[in-house]
């Protein structure tokens, strides 16, 4: 599969083009990555979470966070009406204040893509679709590819795929690599453009920080446009240390290959305070280049309400309450 790896933009010439030539070389590379200092990582993430951000900086952070949200509904009980309502909320998060920015994307299951696309017509809000047998990822490759192609055909701008955690944990790295490459191929549209590919690791199932670092590099080598922490469907979702680790991987990857990859923490980010901690981490680790909705996203649903309440507090001086924002 070396030819495919070399197709990933920028990887050629960085000394990494032969990494995925064989199972053995990929393993050698991934296991050759430096081990993660767990104590240092967690301490660093905790320190970055202690910044006090107030007044104008807070107002800026809130608006930035709103514009970075992938407003998500991934429930078995999703209906067309619910997706339309969510899209309406994404277009006009706070009807009482037209200066509120719009969200970055609406994230839905593949069968809701057409509905979301229709409801978002005339805006620049993207439609993201989960695919590849989300959230478990336990399906045969042809099924996953068909799932992806279906979502792309329905108009999805972004595809959130899940990796095969079973294969990764049992050491079959090349299988995971090839699957990402194949899904990326399936993201191509007939007109030659391609849907953005976000790769979900489900870090809560990967057991160690070393594994998170390895899978980050593996996905980036395979051509991921975004790396995403979690599905939001397991007990442990995005945590600050895991996100910090992925931000560092993205930074190192660009330093080595010149290719910029986005990061999306998802699941469990519910408050404005949480969101601001993540923004501080991005700023301190990656800098301004990543502080845009193009390169950093929040996968969230209830976060938006808290951001809106905080925004109302800043503009009116009154603490707001859940009675004044929509119930999803």
């Amino acid at each position: 599969m070396s030819t495919v790896a070399a197709n990933a933009p920028g990887v050629a010439g960085s000394g990494l083009q032969d990494v995925a030539a064989s199972e053995a070389s990929l393993r050698r590379f991934l296991h050759g990555l430096p081990g993660v200092d767990q104590v240092g990582l967690e301490a660093r993430a905790a320190t970055l979470g202690t910044r006090s951000i107030k007044t104008t900086a807070k107002a800026y952070a809130i608006d930035l966070a709103i514009s970075m949200i992938d407003l998500t509904t991934l429930e078995g009980a999703d209906t067309v009406g619910k997706v339309r309502a969510l899209c309406a909320k994404g277009r006009t998060p706070d009807p009482t204040d037209p200066t509120t920015p719009r969200v970055a994307a609406i994230c839905v299951y593949p069968d809701m893509v057409a509905t979301a696309k229709d409801a978002l017509r005339g805006t620049d809000i993207q439609v993201a679709s989960v695919a590849t047998a989300f959230p478990a990822g336990r399906a045969a490759l042809p099924v996953k590819l068909a799932d992806t192609a279906d979502a792309v055909a329905a108009g999805a701008d972004e595809i959130d795929m899940v990796i095969d955690r079973g294969a990764f944990l049992s050491g079959r790295y090349l299988d995971v690599f090839n699957e990402i490459v194949a899904v990326k191929e399936a993201c191509k549209r007939p007109d030659g453009t391609s849907a953005h590919l976000k790769v979900i690791f489900e870090t809560g199932e990967l057991q160690t920080y070393d594994n998170v670092r390895r899978v980050s590099w593996l996905a980036m080598l395979a051509g991921a446009d975004f790396i995403k922490t979690s599905t939001g469907k397991v007990a442990v979702n995005a945590t600050p240390p895991v996100t910090l680790l992925m931000l560092e991987a993205v930074r190192d990857f660009r330093a080595q290959t010149g290719v910029q990859v986005g990061v999306k923490p998802a699941g469990g980010i519910k408050t404005t305070k949480d969101a601001m901690k993540y923004l501080v981490m991005v700023n301190e680790t990656l800098g301004d280049d990543w502080l845009t909705p193009h390169w950093f996203r929040f996968g969230a649903s209830s976060l938006l309400n808290d951001l809106l309440m905080q925004r109302q507090k800043l503009t009116t001086g009154r603490y707001s309450g859940p009675d004044y924002v929509t119930v999803d």
Partner: peptide, 9 residues
């Protein structure tokens, strides 16, 4: 005053 102006009270 915080209680008086709080929208959720």
């Amino acid at each position: 005053p915080t209680l008086a102006s709080h929208q959720d009270v």
